[in-house]
Amino acid sequence: MLANYAFIGIFFIAALIFPLIPLIAAWRLRPARPTATKLDTYECGLEVIGETRVQFRVQYYLYALAFVIFDVEMVFLYPWAVAYNQLGLYGLLAMTVFIVILVFGLAYEWKKGALEWV
């Protein structure tokens, strides 16, 4: 059975080699006549103003933080999901408490406006 994980590894190597073939072939085949204008950054034909790596909206971070919480919740739900029928009513109630706490967190976040895109 463990050999199946090795198959993934072997296919990963195949997938690693695969994009190299067209890239190398295209590199050999295509013309290369670069000029200063061609090599410039394309921003709709205007001259580039300022840095690219500037500050961006804080909302992205809020979503990322909320994501981490709920993704961890999901990770906890998965092992429960394969066995919840054997755990019976007790398992169901325990998981309900867990989910309710997190749903409360989501509702709080929603109320606080962390999920608003302003």
């Binding site: 590199w27 085949l29 410039d40 690219t52």
Partner: peptide, 10 residues
């Protein structure tokens, strides 16, 4: 395959 490919200097 035959398109020219440029890597921007930046």
């Amino acid at each position: 395959f035959f398109k020219e490919d440029v890597v921007p200097v930046m």
